[in-house]
Simulated scan of single mutants.
Amino acid sequence: MTTITTRQHWMTVPEGRLFAQSWTPSDNAGSEGSAPIVMLHESLGSVALWRDFPAQLAHATGRRVVAYDRLGFGQSDARQGLPDLDFVAQEAARHFPSVCEQLQLASYVLLGHSVGGGMAVEIAARASSECRAVVTIAAQALVEPHTLAGIREARARFQKAEQLARLAKYHGDKARWVVDAWTETWLSPAFADWSLDNSLPRLTCPLLALHGELDEYGSTAQPARIARLAGGGGLCEILPGARHMPHREMPEQVLSHITQFLKNI
């Protein structure tokens, strides 16, 4: 019977410490045959907010799974000021190489949710053979009115103290920064031209774009664009009835798609 071993890790970057957690299935421990899956969280996310999905993913795929809190999120150290407008590409260039080095990840599969999907694309675009595949869940490829409308509604909800208090369970006194880093960056007119159009064609590995039919932060045109422009070949799967959190709403279907995609990788 497969068991999952969970470990916590701390890494250092020039701006502070990053928290990570790993889930290793017993039948994969010490194996070099399958690249581990590195998970990149959404704009309000953290390791803890993945809940039990990393363990489910490790069990379903037989691969080691790693997730980390970006600087300013979860258990990682706070950061000063709102992110720069090129924060998606910055994560790929500035912090992810340190994560790989300190966790000794010679190769990997990337799985990113929402903006984490954009970061996965940016990382893969800079990588060579070490990135074996990319999976995006509810990712955005560009700024569209559908996305901005959803963010405006969310910004209004987080004006309520009880909503912010729920987020503080995961981010502590960084919760307000987390909300502002998301809403004020995406709603800035200067961010309107952001897209993955220049990065997607540079991918050399296969890509799977999963997206909920009813996603409130991105239309189904988003995953279609991601899959179409992916240089290593892209597959788009729309999940009927799902919204922005399909890995919580229908984990069995999401795990099935990912497992099948990674079967020969």
Rank of each mutant, 00 (worst) to 15 (best):
I137G: 00
F96P: 00
H41G: 01
R51P: 03
A141L: 07
S76P: 03
H113Y: 06
S76N: 12
A139S: 15
V134I: 05
A93H: 11
P97C: 07
H113Q: 04
L44G: 04
M39H: 05
D52Y: 00
R94E: 12
P97E: 07
L44H: 09
V121K: 03
A55I: 04
G45H: 10
V109T: 11
S98W: 13
V143G: 00
S43V: 14
D86R: 13
L49C: 00
L85I: 15
E122L: 03
A138R: 08
V109I: 15
V99N: 02
F73Q: 04
V65H: 12
F53M: 09
A106V: 12
L103H: 07
M39S: 03
P97Y: 07
L142E: 14
A93Y: 08
L110S: 09
L85G: 14
G116F: 10
E101R: 11
G118T: 13
H59S: 15
A58D: 10
G74M: 05
D77W: 07
V143T: 08
P54W: 00
R132T: 08
E91P: 04
D86M: 09
T61E: 07
P145H: 11
R126Y: 05
R126N: 09
I137K: 04
A120K: 00
Q102T: 08
V47R: 05
A127K: 07
